[in-house]
Nucleic acid binder design. Structure first.
Length: 564
RNA sequence: CGGGGUAUGGCGCAGCCCGGUAGCGCGCUAAGAUGGGGUCUUAGAGGCCCUCGGUUCGAAUCCGAGUACCCCGACCA
């Protein structure tokens, strides 16, 4: 491709709206163009990179026994009602009406349709296991699209769905997919971390996310450098900092006028925050729940939601707390019987806690569980944090920020049961098919790749997903000698099958070098008067500081080395 | 949904406080010079100043109501 013909242009200045590196660079490089919040046009350079990612994905999915299909985005709302996910997705679901005023949705994912498909195509254990996948557009009305292609409302996703007869078979499929995913990301030149993840409201046993480490990422991961444990903070378990047990003291009420936060309480009483218990008020499916957790820990709402089997969970409003007789800053579970009481298991780690006095201006000291208060349920509902112990080996956990680029889960039989996708087993019994699903965000992976691979001058594309392999610059194409040498080299490389972006513009050398750095193609070839005099071109990899002169007739040899 | 911010040629911005019919840089067009890190000169083209309403002889500018986009949060009492 000649630069003079390329549809998009680079920008000399940073677009004002873009703060995240990948967003800024993709706009400047002329890869994407915004249409609305979270809605983008992919220009030729971005599309080529995405096609390369897709090709890698297809190859691995096919190799794992997947068969490509194409399901529609436009779907009747009824199947979403059947599975309960019309409500589940809520406002994230794009809705529209057709001309007969029937309710339709733009699909955010395809479990409903694929399960219906399985119902009509799979009837016997002989049809299992099997897997279909597609690379197709998803629509999700995200509350807050952000950072260019990182979080958008319309995006391409590879989604695969597996069908198995039993759990053992699903295990095999699942492990095969974990491997395929590792291969895909490795082949894209992108190191990812497979981490344990929350499987969401639908349930299912195992779930892993593939995280691309990046500072700008939205996910927080806890990892153990010793045993390799890695989990999303949403569900990570941890060994909470232990506290020495003391001889139990007598429960006592002390005056603490104006002391309303854990921090103030700890300072006032000259004790660590881990010697306090804090009370947090939630509404779980409309019911007030009082959470008690050690003062140095935070509530993990996802863990809490899972523990309570709640559909909807949110913090209680001040009015709701008031109505339940809970005094902000001074509440404890002691003597409470008008609300549900739930405790984090940290209430067992330590004793003689300071807790709210249940009247303004007072706190109890030496509160002990279960001597002084009861709770309906005790469970792990605390957020795992940097420095906590690894749940497997006890080593101190560290946190990493990252971008979720893939997610795999064992779905089990939720969809096949509600949509009655059964098969006949060898004994002639009807049983629900067991499903797994596996997604990769193509555009997000591209953005993540740039997030991870750039410097202050621009993108540094991993070779396997670069829009072109070679950036051929002709400095001063007006010069007949340079011009014809560059033209010859260009057509020679094209014929040899290289993907070349040929900067044939009559721009100054500086402009061309800067644009080449911005686009970040793996190898840059420079044809100039001074190189040609020596019968050579300069070859330089984007990530290297210096290039080297290569004789004209050895360019292919050099490229083979530099692109390896 | 809550908070903050922005909206003026393709991009980045000034002008607004103090109302008088729009300007700068980049990019674009043309010509010439230059030719290894955003080079220089000259001449041009390009704007319902987000929308609607109001005030006024007159509104990019003042007032009101919208809309869009960006950022933060959606979490501890």
């Amino acid at each position: 491709m000649r630069s003079t013909q390329l549809f998009s242009k680079t920008l000399r200045e940073d677009p004002a709206e873009a703060e995240t590196a990948s967003h800024r660079l993709m706009l400047r490089a002329g890869m994407i163009s915004q249409v609305a919040a979270g809605v983008y046009t992919s220009l030729p350079l971005a599309l080529r990179a995405m096609r390369k990612i897709e090709a890698i994905i297809r190859k691995e999915m096919d190799a794992s026994g997947g068969q490509e299909v194409r399901m529609p985005s436009l779907q009747p709302v009824e199947i979403w009602r059947e599975t309960g996910r019309e409500a589940g997705f809520g406002d994230n679901l794009f809705r529209l009406k057709d001309r007969r005023l029937r309710d339709m949705v733009l699909a955010p994912t395809h479990e409903e349709v694929v399960t219906s498909l399985a119902r009509s195509n799979i009837s016997s254990y002989r049809d299992l296991p099997s897997m279909v996948y597609q690379i197709q557009t998803k629509f999700r009305d995200e509350p807050r699209p952000r950072a260019g292609l990182i979080r958008v409302r319309e995006f391409d996703m590879k989604d695969a769905y597996s069908f198995d007869a039993d759990e053992e078979s699903l295990d095999i499929t699942y492990r095969k997919m974990l491997e395929a995913y590792n291969t895909i990301f490795a082949r894209c030149g992108l190191p990812t971390l497979a981490v344990e993840a929350d499987s969401g409201a639908i349930g299912g046993k195992d779930s892993h996310e593939f995280i691309l480490p990046a500072e700008s990422g939205e996910d927080t991961i806890l990892t153990c450098s010793n045993c390799g444990y890695a989990a999303n903070a949403e569900r990570a378990r941890s060994q909470k900092p232990p506290m020495k047990l003391e001889p139990e003291g007598d429960l006592d009420l002390v005056e603490t006028q104006g002391i309303e936060t854990i921090q103030a309480l700890a300072e006032f009483l000259k004790i660590p925050s881990s010697k306090t218990l804090k009370a947090v008020f939630y509404m779980a499916d409309g019911e007030m729940v009082l959470i008690t957790i050690r003062g140095d820990l935070e509530v993990n709402e996802i863990k809490l939601k899972n523990l309570l089997h709640a559909k909807e969970l949110r913090l209680a409003t001040p009015e709701e707390s008031q109505a339940a007789g809970l005094t902000p800053g001074y509440t404890s579970p002691i003597g409470k019987n008008n609300v549900r009481l739930v405790g984090d298991d940290s209430i067992n780690l330590g004793n003689n806690f300071a807790v709210g006095g249940n009247k303004p201006g007072y706190h109890y000291v030496n509160a002990n569980f279960p001597r002084d208060f009861a709770v309906e349920t005790v469970g792990d509902i605390a957020l795992a944090e940097d420095g906590h112990g690894c749940p497997v080996c006890g080593t101190s956990l560290t946190t990493v920020r990252g971008i979720e680029v893939g997610h795999v889960f064992k779905l089990g039989t939720y969809f096949t049961e509600t949509l009655k996708a059964n098969f006949l087993d060898a004994q002639g019994q009807q049983r629900p098919i067991i499903m797994g699903c596996y997604g990769i965000g193509v555009g997000r992976l591209l953005a993540g790749a740039i997030e991870q691979n750039h410097d202050d001058k621009g993108i540094i594309f991993p070779a396997p997903i670069a829009p072109y392999e070679v950036h051929l610059l002709s400095l001063n194409p007006q010069d007949p000698e340079v011009g014809s040498a560059a033209e010859e080299l260009y057509s020679r490389l094209e014929r040899a099958g290289y993907e070349v972006l040929y900067d044939d513009r009559t721009e100054s050398a500086g402009v061309k070098f800067n644009d080449a750095d911005l686009l970040g193609l793996p190898v840059r070839l420079v044809v100039s008067g001074r190189n040609i005099k020596q019968g050579a071109v300069e070859a330089k990899r984007r990530q290297d500081a210096e290039g080297s002169l290569v004789p004209l007739n050895e360019v292919e040899l050099a490229l083979a080395k530099l692109l390896a």
